[in-house]
Design a protein around this nucleic acid. Structure first.
Lengths: 168, 168
DNA sequence: AATAACTTTCAATTTATTTTGAAAGTTTAA
DNA sequence: TTAAACTTTCAAAATAAATTGAAAGTTATT
């Protein structure tokens, strides 16, 4: 396989994956492009490379910065802005999980909390089933948080981290 | 808040969450409805309750069964099929992760494996950046698998599981 | 203060996904 | 074997999401 073919395939693949894991396809493609770029790229270069419009490039880059996946860099003597991706994929994954927790899980949790204040007889079968479901979901979020914390702590542990590198 | 309002809000909320975490909105809504139903429901009841078409109900239920989130149950003396949701949310979460790994991550991994067979000079900056990205991604998938295994093992540990229940 | 270089916005369009519902298919019971 | 009860299919329609690009906005330079 030639480099350009591999590059396109990588961008395409990362785009597909991204769109199913919470960031939009174009966001993931721009991220993929930056990920395999040795140097920073300008908005101009990104739009040319991926054949997307100026507006799309601009909004996508801004979104990626909001998500903490891409950083802006200024070059001395240049008016243009240049962009660089976070290349540590584990950091990328953690960042995505963190953002999605904030954007998607937390609002749900507050709705669930409300739902527990439901009027009526607590011994009613229907009420009980609803309260059970809500309680169960809340406990799972707690478990997931705990598991995630453990995974992150585990990662921060230098020894284990070193062990992982042996398998790379 | 009255029961019916709470019920609708729950279905709506679960639907929104589902659609951002890999199962479609209607799938999540049907799942939510079954989740808070003390008894099994027929396709007919589901379509009436959620005001969706027969075709949509049928396909959605089939999808949910494919995902292992809903089971079919037959009642003696009834021609109709009845459905029951998996109510252990931790199992639901594990099941979704497992399915999505199979459906979305595994195909990506095999593409990445291909990409490593790229022609040309390995010392070329561009090649190196691409190979680095691919390698890095593969190692993160390994880490995530490991962390997930740990989380699941942790959950299966009765003692820890009991501790969790204290916080419920 | 005028111009050039660049970034941002957003209404209109395009593309992708979901839903419908009538028709076809299947199974059971008489 | 026929009819009734039920399930599945899928092309068309509806809805939702992403993308474009020209115009407006901003900032730096002369």
């Amino acid at each position: 396989m030639k480099y350009n073919e591999a590059k396109d395939k990588f961008i395409q693949t990362w785009g597909t994956l991204g769109s199913s894991w919470g960031i939009s396809r174009t966001m993931a493609q721009v991220h993929a492009l930056l990920l395999i770029s040795a140097d920073t790229l300008s908005a101009e270069e990104i739009m040319e490379d991926l054949k997307i419009s100026r507006g799309n490039a601009n909004m996508t880059i801004r979104d990626l910065m909001d998500w903490g996946l891409v950083y802006k860099e200024l070059k001395a003597g240049e008016r243009k802005e240049f962009f660089r991706a976070e290349k540590d994929i584990w950091k990328v994954a953690k960042q995505i999980i963190k953002e999605r927790r904030k954007r998607e899980i937390e609002p749900v949790l507050s709705v669930l909390e409300e739902l527990k204040q439901i009027d009526g007889n607590k011994n009613d079968k229907k009420h009980k089933a609803l309260i059970d479901a809500v309680t169960n979901i809340e406990s799972v979020v707690d478990k997931a948080d705990f598991a995630l914390d453990r995974a992150i702590k585990l990662d921060e542990n230098a020894l284990v981290s070193a062990l992982f590198k042996l398998f790379k």
